[in-house]
Simulated scan of single mutants.
Amino acid sequence: MSILVTGATGTIGSLITHGLASAGADVTAFVRTRGKVSFPDGVTEVVGDLTDVPSMRAAFSSVRTLFLLNAVTPDEVTQALIALNLAREAGIERIVYLSVIHADKFTNVPHFTGKYTVERMIESLGIPATILRPAYFMQNEFMVQKAIEDYGVYPMPIGGAGVSMIDARDIAEIAVAELLRRDRAPSALATVTLDLVGPQTLTGTSVAQAWSAALGRDVVYAGDDVAAFEGQMAAFGPSWLAYDMRLMMAGIQTFGMQAAEGAIARLESILGHPLRTYENFVREATTKA
């Protein structure tokens, strides 16, 4: 019986797939197209789609443990609810679900409320799971790195309430640890929820300062204008996603993204090493560039 990783070709899913393979687990990567990326030896690819029920039933037939990641799409909730129902149908009782921090607080943000709906389904149906609630990914900054370097402006309107950004590598390592813990347990384990955060509280101004230090020249924060941010996003992608991201940024400005006391120590205990810092992430990004 294997661990099935959905979203296996994405940023988080690919890291998880490699991490599980390195740990000697039997891993199956759920992909839309075979051969799109190079997986480690021993990883089995299974082709399917989260909206294609027959392909999912086939994929779940030899699975003991499931990592469920649903991309931000208009039918995200449908995908997740179908996947969880089919997992129950297949007798899968070992699940790690990737949600988002403060899913219950950002109630007007579509993909936050979507993920919170899935969390409620997991709870109401008594599905044994680890619910991972990550804050803003540091790797999201790759989308704006060129703008930062070319124009000396940090354009993400994250405001001043404070965001505990987390490195995707730490997210993946924690997910691997939880998948292995559940997969290797003699029976299904109780449901737990983990807020995944980085070790620092960052603001638009402090993030700009980190880029200034790494680049050796001034980088300024562009400010809190979420309407302008939406317009920029809409120029490069669908309008529904641009609006969703605008609402998220407004929520970040209002509520911030920080975990409860004790979360960092708990995460570092799982990882076995300190959480990666934003300054180190920026130094790595600028060195590679």
Rank of each mutant, 00 (worst) to 15 (best):
A227Q: 15
Y154V: 01
S55R: 00
A259E: 01
R94I: 00
S2R: 15
F67D: 02
Q209G: 10
D195H: 12
S2I: 05
Q209M: 10
V43A: 07
A227C: 02
F229N: 11
V37E: 04
I12V: 15
T205S: 15
I122M: 09
A242G: 04
A58I: 07
A21T: 10
V100H: 01
S124H: 10
E149R: 14
T287R: 13
G251C: 04
G13L: 10
A21N: 11
S187T: 12
T11N: 12
N70Q: 12
V72K: 08
Q79R: 15
A260K: 14
V27H: 06
T191Q: 12
L132Y: 06
F229T: 11
T287D: 09
A177N: 06
S38P: 01
P74G: 07
P199R: 03
R94E: 13
P128T: 08
V176M: 06
D104L: 08
D225W: 05
T65S: 15
T254C: 04
M121Q: 12
A25M: 15
R181P: 03
I95R: 01
A168F: 05
E123V: 01
G42T: 11
T107M: 09
I122R: 09
S124M: 11
A235V: 06
S2G: 05
F60A: 00
T6G: 09
V63T: 15
V144L: 03
S269D: 15
R181H: 10
A8Y: 08
A147C: 02
I270W: 05
D150H: 11
A188K: 07
P74H: 06
I82A: 09
S14T: 14
M245I: 12
A103D: 08
F67H: 13
G231E: 13
T191H: 05
I131Q: 02
L98Y: 05
R169C: 05
S164Y: 03
Y243E: 13
F60I: 02
R266M: 10
D218F: 00
L275D: 00
G114L: 10
R246Y: 00
G114W: 08
V207T: 15
R217T: 12
S212D: 05
P134I: 09
G10S: 14
H273I: 01
D224E: 12
E149T: 11
I92Y: 03
L66A: 12
A235C: 05
R133P: 11
R64C: 02
K115S: 03
M156D: 09
V282D: 06
L4G: 14
F281G: 04
M245G: 10
I131F: 04
L179F: 02
L267E: 15
L275C: 00
S269W: 04
I171N: 01
P128R: 03
V31I: 11
G35T: 07
D150S: 12
A135G: 09
P238D: 15
R169M: 03
I12Q: 15
P54K: 08
Q200C: 06
V226H: 11
E261G: 10
A265D: 14
H111Q: 07
E123F: 04
A259L: 09
M248E: 13
T193G: 08
A185Y: 03
